[in-house]
Computed example of a mutant assay.
Amino acid sequence: MTGAFDDLLTANEDFSRTFEYSGLTGRAARGLAVVTCMDSRIDPLKLLGLNPGDAKILRNAGARVTDDVLRTLILAVYLLNVDRVLVMPHTDCRMAKSTDEDVHELISREYGIDTRSLEFHTVANQDAALRRDLVRIRTYPYLPDRLKVGGAVYDVHTGKLMPVEL
């Protein structure tokens, strides 16, 4: 694992010299799970005033509540101290600017790969998708009724969260 990753390995050497998190457990100290996008403009710990160990961070394209997110939330709730979930998509998201067909076509045209067997979970209406995802968590039969579920859109241009109510 050299060459393409040398910068990361060097940075990790520096990080490990002053590593201070060895006492943390795998449990969410603040009882929080955050479902957000993989967009690199989002720093979920910093923007929410959290520290390492405070929350479980689940990331995917578009911050969608997929089957895998639900599976992960079950583990987080029952095994890792999570009692509240924040679903946090963001402004200026590529997944909200395309359809699945657009993405399939682009990948096929540019790279010659047929991705039509995949769902990319693009978002035609971000507000409606967020509300649907919140309902999906709240009504999922394997998650407890006591689980607190909230949603907010993160503005990547201002750093502000815009809460969304059901």
Results as ranks from 00 to 15, higher is better:
Met38Leu: 15
Asp155Met: 08
Gly112Glu: 04
Arg17Glu: 13
Ala11Trp: 11
Leu58Cys: 02
Arg131Phe: 01
Asp39Val: 05
Thr91Trp: 06
Arg146Phe: 10
Lys148Gly: 11
Phe120Trp: 11
Tyr140Gln: 05
Leu134Gly: 03
Ile137Asp: 01
Glu101Asn: 11
Leu79Lys: 11
His104Pro: 02
Asn12Gly: 09
Pro89Gly: 10
Asp14Ser: 15
Asp54Gly: 02
Pro144Asp: 07
Ser117Asp: 15
Leu80Trp: 02
Lys160Cys: 08
Arg30Trp: 09
Val135Gln: 14
Lys160Ser: 12
His90Pro: 12
Val153Glu: 05
Thr115Phe: 07
Met38Trp: 05
Ala55Ile: 04
Gly151Thr: 11
Thr66Ile: 10
Asp39Met: 07
Leu48Ala: 05
Lys160Met: 08
His104Cys: 06
Cys93Val: 08
Ile107Asn: 05
Gly151Asn: 11
Glu105Trp: 03
Tyr140Val: 00
Asp68Trp: 08
Ser117Arg: 15
Pro44Thr: 03
Val156Ala: 02
Asn125His: 14
Leu48Ser: 04
Asp92Met: 08
Thr91Ser: 14
Gly151Glu: 11
Leu45Asn: 09
Arg71Gln: 13
Gly53Gln: 03
Asp7Glu: 12
Arg27Gly: 01
His121Ile: 07
Thr122Ile: 06
Asp67Met: 08
Gly151His: 12
Phe15Met: 12
Gly62Lys: 01
Leu134Lys: 07
Glu13Met: 06
Glu105Val: 04
Val123Cys: 13
Ala33His: 01
Arg131Thr: 10
Asp145Gln: 14
Ala152Glu: 02
Gln126Met: 14
Ser40Ala: 12
Leu45Val: 00
Leu58Arg: 06
Pro163Asp: 06
Arg41Ala: 04
Asp92Asn: 13
Glu105Arg: 14
Asp43His: 10
